[in-house]
Design a protein around this nucleic acid. Sequence first.
DNA 1: GTGGTTTAATAACGGTCGTTATGAAAAATT
DNA 2: AATTTTTCATAACGACCGTTATTAAACCAC
Lengths: 197, 197
Amino acid sequence: MGRHREFDVEKALDGVLCVFWRKGYEGTSYADLTEAAGVERPALYSAFGNKEALFRKALARYYERHLHYLPEALEMSVARDVVAHILTNAVDLNTRFPEHTGCFIINGVLAGSDDAESIRQALIEARAEAEMQLRERLERAKAEGDLDETASPATLAAFVLAVTHGIAVQAKAGFSRETLTAVAEQALSTWPVGKAG
Amino acid sequence: MGRHREFDVEKALDGVLCVFWRKGYEGTSYADLTEAAGVERPALYSAFGNKEALFRKALARYYERHLHYLPEALEMSVARDVVAHILTNAVDLNTRFPEHTGCFIINGVLAGSDDAESIRQALIEARAEAEMQLRERLERAKAEGDLDETASPATLAAFVLAVTHGIAVQAKAGFSRETLTAVAEQALSTWPVGKAG
DNA sequence: GTGGTTTAATAACGGTCGTTATGAAAAATT
DNA sequence: AATTTTTCATAACGACCGTTATTAAACCAC
């Protein structure tokens, strides 16, 4: 029986999540990671694996702690409320923490070096999954008459995600919660409500 | 009178623009830059200065060659046409070149290391300048009755830029021109036309 | 043909990158 | 008390980062 692990793995991962959220995958060095986690590099490697594996664990932690509002939204009975819930919570999450604004998934990698490609693809897949889930929910809404019959669920889902991503970019640039709330409301302002809605 | 410069500075800068557009500021190494420009590092330094100065010159080149549609749009006499022109051309620019999709200004730096902060701020200012110009144009539209009197030019400008940024993120992720065109049209469908419009 | 100036390539600089070898420390078992 | 096992910190690894020193090449004036 050997030496017990001395540091709190959960707190270390929370710290790592914050610095990846603030600086992105490639902008974050091991100097940043060890400072944020409070342990030295070999201990990080031992607990989490290499940088890529660590980022993937931070991404999973982001889902656990911060993206509950997406499945919550998809459970709502009115399509407009689904989208309102998504946009409202996105604005809140992107502006709640002054030390890391914006969205972890957008901040992670947009354009990067060849070495970052696997992470970039993982983040694209994460966004595609969210969009697919929203599209399916809007298809159900349309079938239920909760969406105008000329509306395209695919287009609306892509539009909502585009606005969400744009809000993330603006939040990271320092836009205020008030401004971004107004943007979300603008997006929602002529939601194609169905006859049953 | 010494040796003449052997390489085409303009073509070198065009090549550099492409690789920064594809990989972003920090994702691009000097190995990438020398390959894209077709000259070795000391020649790049001699002609353009350090990496940061080079990126700024590439940004200026991006404006010269690709962002003509913004001043064109601002000259249009109907506000809705202004926004339509911006969104349509953004979709076109973000999807026209398969070897570098998305927007140079969004791809450059969203989140980055401390070393990239000055470039990140330069890109934020570029976006802020575009938004401010659009906001001023929309204020004029409102004064002319070309915009609903309850509409907020500031919010609409922020909304249009958010959609434009979201389109850029999606284009870089591989979304089709058709999908992004539909997103742009969806955004436009919410446009608050004025009584005179 | 020589000298002066400018440009280009090669190679290397100092530092940082992500990763790991090594020895020490801390634990439990014997 | 000694041994085994696991974890931690220090230091260093090989490679790459952005930048530059040095030498050679190409140009023009004389």
